[in-house]
Nucleic acid binder design. Structure first.
Lengths: 209, 209
DNA sequence: GTCTATACGACGATAGAC
DNA sequence: GTCTATCGTCGTATAGAC
């Protein structure tokens, strides 16, 4: 019912939703077509590289969006606990309180193919996705590690805290898929300030850790 | 070159390897056939329910194996720190120091299909997989929660500690897929005793937490 | 820039010989 | 209990009309 164009941002948003819940292999062109309202061939007009290109662009775009919305507040010298809590709220919104999976998880499977014979042309496209995932992960780690560093952790410890905090969130999202219970995700978010900055005891929370 | 039978345990082991690295959608019958040395039709002879049945049996079998090997030592009244550390070592082996993904993660995606029209027959098979995943998850949570309870945590806190410890492990496995670095996984395993039992300070480790 | 139509291989699944 | 051969469907990807 809409014979005219669809906005580029809207288009990628729709694609993102499919990849987030189905993963790379699970997201068929029919799914992507249905979600966007565009026919398969129209998708190929915008993404000549096919599904692999769609996936890579989705990952890059989401990575940028998350950096802007959630982590930009952290990029000055000394983030406060309140600012880290705000990042937690942004992440809660982004993941719909844990109900939506993370692209880093759902897109990081696959790829026993394409490594077989000599370098095919689309091998580069496949690596594009892997590179986008790795880049987004590193940016996330560095954003969190920056917070830990500002709180006084040395470089190695800062990176460890960042990785552990991310792992807690990613693992909670997996758990949520399995149990339907978002409590673990909520705890991982609530723990974010102390996980990164150590025990600042500026809030009333004590618990283990 | 082996026209005769393949042992049932071996067969499921081979299938497990494919599902672990490729996920449900990513594991094709060709992959499963190649990994087992059996033709597609032979696989159907053993698993009339097809891929869904293979997946469900794999999940159930792995769930049982993990319970036996790793968690059985915990099923008496008061597990010791050393015993929990031993569980960590078993898990490290099971996950090849983080290099192998967890079935709970890789198999818990998918399934926008089969819910469409009226109840088809194979809808039950699909739920079989989801049920197997949920059951394995609950058994894991309860095994860990038992440790926390024995260490003095009340019921809610025990379950929270168990879920958080599992999330830390699952998230570290995701991170390892993304970065190729197993350090986060090693830390999640090392933290297991204190994560479940609180700060027993019986080892020299202090750190945050 | 979107559509209809179609190519063609891989997919899950089945039939029937041995 | 395994095989070869094949089914119909859906997968990704293209060609060409509008």
């Amino acid at each position: 019912m809409a014979p005219r164009t669809l906005d580029d941002d809207d288009l990628l948003d729709r694609l993102t939703g499919v990849f987030r819940s189905a993963g790379y292999e699970g997201a068929s062109l029919s799914d992507l077509s249905a979600a966007t309202g565009l026919q398969r061939s129209s998708l190929y007009h915008r993404f000549p590289g096919g599904k692999a290109q769609m996936a890579a662009e989705v990952v890059r775009r989401v990575g940028n969006a998350v950096m802007d919305v959630a982590f930009a507040p952290l990029e000055h010298a000394h983030p406060t606990v309140a600012e880290v809590q705000a990042v937690g709220r942004s992440l809660s919104t982004f993941y719909a309180d844990g109900a939506i999976s993370c692209l880093l998880d759902t897109m990081s499977l696959r790829d026993h193919a394409s490594t077989a014979a000599g370098g095919t042309v689309d091998g580069a496209v496949d690596n594009e996705l892997a590179d986008a995932l790795a880049a987004a992960t590193q940016r996330w780690i560095q954003a969190f590690a920056g917070v830990a560093s500002a709180a006084g952790a040395d470089q190695g410890e800062a990176r460890a805290r960042a990785e552990d905090a991310i792992a807690a969130i990613e693992g909670a999202l997996v758990l949520r898929r399995l149990t339907g219970d978002g409590a673990a995700f909520a705890r991982a978010i609530a723990r974010l300030p102390t996980a990164l900055m150590g025990d600042t005891r500026s809030t009333k929370r004590s618990r283990r850790n």
